[in-house]
Structure formats: C-alpha cells, structure tokens
Simulated assay, not measured.
Amino acid sequence: MKCEIKVLLFWEGLPACALITKKIVEDFGENLTFIATKPDVPFEKLEEKIGKNIIWLSHPNEIWIRKDEFLDHEIIIHTGWCWKKWLKFDKYMKKSGAKICVSVDNRFKLNFRQFIGAFYFRLFLRPIFDHVFVPGESGIKLMKFLGMKKNAIFTGLYGCDENIFFNKKIFSERKSQFIFVGQLIHRKGIDILIKSFQNYKQNNGKWSLRIIGGKSWDNQYGFLDKNIIYSPFLQPEEISIEMSNSKCFVLPSRDDHWATVVHEATRCGLPLLLSRAVGAHEDLLEQGKNGFLVHKNIPNILEQLMHKIESLDNENKLYHFHNKSLELSKKFGIDSYSKSFHRIVNAAQK
C-alpha cells in the first residue's frame, strides 16, 4: 500500500532498532524522507537493511540551514525537543500547514525535573506538537503528565527486527548463563551486576555470566574470571545468537529510558531480571511470570534473584518464563511500529 502524503522522519543517532522502519519505508516509498545523525556505535549496512537512502546530518541543528528543501512535506516526525533549530524548523513548517509529531523515549519518573518540565512543556512546547510517539506505558504516563491529550499519544516507537531476533534454540539445550548486553557504564548498573554475580558465585551459584558491550574490558570493576565471558559490542545478528544460547537476561540499570534490548531479549525467549529504572518493564515484564523486578537495585537483592532463577530452572519451571517472554514480545516490532506510524499520519490529516 503506497501512501501519497509526504512525510519527513528524523532519528537522532540512528540505532540498530531503526530496522523496524522497514515496512513504512516500503509503504511510503519516495514520499518518505529519512534524515538521521550517525550513532555512537556503528551497525553494518544499516541503510541497505532499512531499504532507504538516508540524508545524514552532521548535527541535528543543521536542519535549519536546509529547511527549504523540505517545504513540501506535510508531516514531520522527529526525535526529541532539545535542539533549538529543530523547534524553529517545526514552527516554520507549521506555518506552511505541516503537522508535527515528536518521538519521546523518556520514562515517567515523577521527579522534580519533570514537575518543572511540565510547566515548560505546557507553556512553550505543547503548542508546537500535534502528536507524540512513545515506546510504551511509561511514555504514555509521562506525556499525559506533561499535558498531551491521550488521543494524541501513540505507542510502538521502539522494538527490534523480529527477522533478526527470534527464538533460535530449544530452551533446555541452552547454556546455564545470565546475559547482559549494553554499555559498561555506571548508569547501566554494570558494577551492581558484577558484584551481585560475585556474591552469587561465592554462595555456590552454578551459572556463568555473558557480558556484551563496550569497546574493551579493562577489569575496572575488579572481578573477572572464567565464569564471565566477555565480548565488545557485536552486530545484531551476533547478539541474537548469544541471547538464544542463554537462559536469563539481566539489566540492573540505575536509569534507562525504554531499553530496546529488553525487547530483543524477550524475542529470543529470555526470562528477565530488570530494575525499576528500565522503562520497558511496564510493557515486557510480568512479575513472577516471565521474570522478576529488582525492587531495590542493590547487589544482595539481585543475587537472591539469580539464585531464584537457577532454582526455577532446576525445577523445570523456567521454561514457562521463556514462553511468557515470547508471548509478551509480540506487542512490539515492525508491524506495531508500522501500524502506529500510519495512525499518526491518518490523525494528522484530520
């Protein structure tokens, strides 16, 4: 189904999860202009896999000096509102009749900054944006709190390519190992993970830990032995294989937005151990059914849950968690993104 309306899509730091745009690229064809800035972590042949030549900006604010190239576009969908020239571009395009949809991946925290942000958003930003595109439930809560009407909020912004991430191996044949995929930084709770795993092993835990992420492992967290298998960042296809060879995904972040990696994990049938700071837990984790929420993000609590996961596997019960993750994963992905994208376009034409 080819769509005639002209849409401009901008994605800052184009990530691998942008592969979920493949269907709308096909649907809109030449009527979709895809603009992006380069990601910090390069992914091989991303344009080729998406099926679209991308206009690369050196910086998001570059849009302003190129504004007249896009005057014929009727809908603008772009990430965030922190770049002044993008907001200026939005206002410029609204004068010509374009509708503006902002993509927001922040989660609802109900902290002081968001209280102040609510006043600012209602005064200066809400008049600019006609619609908002968010990943899931936490995003809905945030944007309603900031003043957007519920019927102007659309979910499905994030998700992985289900042609890459899927259940590749029978659960009973997988390695008894936890897996972490992400940056090796304080915000992602890598130190909490290492300390928890250290305690787990000292208390007779039998599983190993697979860590994927970062440019190199310099043992800065003080624990590295034969029970930790480490790789720097891998391509999505390689990560999918590693996930499908593991039995539990762990992400003890101190602060995260939605974390698409959680969807990747559920697509591969992994039970989950997530902190409350991971936005996707509201959409992809059902307590005691496909994993556990780490209510207090401290090593001894996570260690206890690691032992619980091992115990469930010994009792042949973890397989049910595997099935539930696969079921919940179906809520997001290429089709979900495409349907929401079309709904936004349809709403913008009313």
Rank of each mutant, 00 (worst) to 15 (best):
residue 20 I to S: 01
residue 143 M to L: 13
residue 206 K to M: 13
residue 78 H to R: 15
residue 214 G to Y: 09
residue 116 I to R: 07
residue 93 M to F: 04
residue 111 N to F: 05
residue 166 F to P: 05
residue 4 E to Q: 14
residue 92 Y to R: 11
residue 297 N to C: 15
residue 236 P to W: 07
residue 224 L to K: 13
residue 9 L to Y: 06
residue 88 K to P: 00
residue 262 V to Y: 01
residue 58 S to P: 01
residue 26 E to S: 13
residue 1 M to I: 10
residue 236 P to K: 08
residue 281 H to T: 05
residue 158 Y to V: 06
residue 56 W to Q: 03
residue 286 E to N: 06
residue 180 F to S: 06
residue 79 T to F: 12
residue 321 F to R: 02
residue 290 N to Y: 03
residue 253 S to I: 08
residue 85 K to P: 04
residue 30 E to Y: 08
residue 161 D to M: 12
residue 24 I to M: 12
residue 226 K to D: 15
residue 125 L to Q: 00
residue 82 C to G: 09
residue 306 M to P: 09
residue 228 I to D: 09
residue 249 F to H: 05
residue 159 G to M: 06
residue 117 G to W: 05
residue 45 K to I: 04
residue 21 T to L: 08
residue 5 I to C: 09
residue 281 H to D: 00
residue 325 S to P: 06
residue 111 N to T: 10
residue 336 S to R: 13
residue 57 L to T: 01
residue 329 S to V: 03
residue 165 F to R: 02
residue 225 D to A: 09
residue 133 F to K: 00
residue 109 K to T: 13
residue 1 M to A: 13
residue 112 F to A: 09
residue 245 N to I: 08
residue 75 I to W: 06
residue 91 K to W: 12
residue 62 E to Y: 06
residue 280 A to E: 00
residue 287 Q to F: 00
residue 130 D to S: 09
residue 287 Q to N: 13
residue 162 E to Q: 15
residue 216 S to N: 14
residue 272 L to K: 04
residue 8 L to M: 10
residue 256 D to M: 12
residue 259 A to E: 11
residue 211 I to M: 10
residue 176 S to C: 12
residue 318 L to I: 06
residue 290 N to R: 00
residue 97 G to C: 07
residue 72 D to R: 05
residue 275 S to D: 07
